[in-house]
Design a protein around this nucleic acid. Structure first.
Lengths: 273, 273
DNA sequence: ACAACCTTGCTATAATCCCGCAAGGTTAGA
DNA sequence: TCTAACCTTGCGGGATTATAGCAAGGTTGT
């Protein structure tokens, strides 16, 4: 059951509608109403057997959403954001479901695979995988297991480490994402965040290896030691106290040219790992 | 040349960028920047040979658009509407190009054809036809000719009657869209409008024929005579002065049951003809 | 008892979005 | 003057998203 969903019997003083009725009134299919719900648009109460119960206000909101969709051409994410700005919807935090989707997309993006490639390998449809990654549909345990196996992860990875960090993260609480050869990354905030801050600890001579590029922007601050970073063939030597801002689309590579460990505060948006 | 586009030489006091530079800074391809431009997002000046000239403000706006697209997941139509609300962009009226697209989509929708069906019949790609209908790409004369032929229209229909009406439309200025057996429809406003108001003149015993349904909502006001309208098997007899509001998704049919001509003011949204 | 609805998980298809290319023209530097 | 690297418009191919329906099983209301 989704977090925040309330199970209760409606009182006869409060007329309600079932999803089929609402679909007819609004002019979209029940499937669409359910998918909009998962984005935070209209969160109806439920009976004990989990039937959705909509109010007249819900119908009104959904009609507005339909207008924005069909007449104005806004997609669902935009509709939710607009109605959120107007205080008309209050989408719950993503919780686990949202984090799973983002995690799946990161895993796929990192391997530079298309939706079609992963979907075919795992035995699900492209549309379904897209919806999973965008947290618009939920997968069964069987499906998540297949995906975990494909990415060589443990299915528990999807449930455990997926939570969001609190605002404050003490050193012992940091999540270590990956420890490559001589490179240790400690995540300083995670969950549904737009920025992804890390603390990098880089041993002497260790680095990123070959140049790479991806989308986004990156901010670096040298806490201690030196960092050599090369963008588009141009080399920079950064020292303690230096900062550096660049676009991830520019091919770049970096390494620690010094004799002691370098510590770098590194923030990128959007999250790429 | 698009209405409102200004040809002028930039002064050396005002630094400008070409589209390739902008694409690199923003992090999308030149094609995407061009397609966003056609939606009203960033309208750069041009050199005499039509090269686009972007300012630093344009770049800033496009970066914001990219963020909204890639991080927030808003589609281009939503981004334009949001930035319009903030007074950051001022999309020009659609003019001819916009009207052609809307006209094409109406022609296709009316025949209940898919993009794929029309595209294949005409010999263009689905994506291109979609973009044409959404006024995001322009077609050559050859392409428009093929489409006109497919729909059994004159290519001039795309250029002439596509303009928008003025606010005021006198009786003699009304556009007669269709005159079926005993049914005359006079359009009272046209162009890029969300509502489509008509005056229907319906001879005795004439009507819509078989029940039909489509998307949208409809408002009717009986100016004179009677109208019999049936929704979902339920019959209504409307007289002069009566009004009627219903959802187009409900299967409906109507006819004039009286002995003299019925005049009905009929408004529907979105436009369906 | 049963028709008509609901649930979740998922598919197939329709539509949109993105980026690259062809053909031809322009720019800016060697 | 030449030429590489860019631009233009028109369009295609492929990736992604949006929509509506279905299977299997459960619920509701007459």
């Amino acid at each position: 059951m989704q977090p925040g969903v309330q199970v209760m019997k409606p009182t006869s003083a409060e007329p309600y509608l079932k999803i089929g009725d609402v679909a007819k009134k609004v002019g979209v299919s029940p499937s669409v109403i359910r998918s909009w719900e998962s984005l935070g648009l209209a969160r109806p109460r439920r009976t004990e057997s989990k039937y959705r119960l909509y109010t007249a206000d819900d119908v009104k909101l959904l009609k507005r959403a339909r207008f924005l969709r069909k007449v104005r051409g806004l997609n669902a994410a935009a509709i939710v954001q607009l109605l959120k700005r107007e205080g008309k919807v209050h989408p719950a935090g993503d919780g686990n479901a949202g984090a799973i989707g983002a995690h799946l997309r990161q895993l796929r993006a990192r391997r530079r695979l298309s939706l079609a490639q992963v979907a075919q390998a795992v035995g699900i449809s492209v549309g379904f995988l897209s919806a999973l990654e965008r947290s618009q549909m939920s997968g069964s345990v069987g499906t998540l297991r297949k995906l975990a196996r494909f990415y060589k992860k443990n299915i528990l990875d999807f449930f455990n480490a997926s939570g969001a960090s609190g605002r404050q993260v003490r050193p012992a609480e940091r999540k270590v994402l990956e420890a490559g050869a001589g490179v240790r990354m400690e995540l300083l905030a995670w969950g549904n965040t737009v920025m992804e801050p890390h603390l990098f600890r880089i041993a002497p001579e260790a680095g990123s290896g070959d140049p790479y590029a991806h989308e986004g922007e990156e901010f670096i601050y040298i806490l201690r030691g030196d960092l050599e970073i090369t963008l588009d063939g141009e080399e920079y030597r950064l020292k303690s106290g230096d900062s550096f801002y660049f676009e991830s689309a520019t091919p770049h590579r970096w390494k620690n040219p010094g004799r002691r460990e370098t510590w770098v505060l590194w923030v990128n948006t959007p999250p790429t790992f």
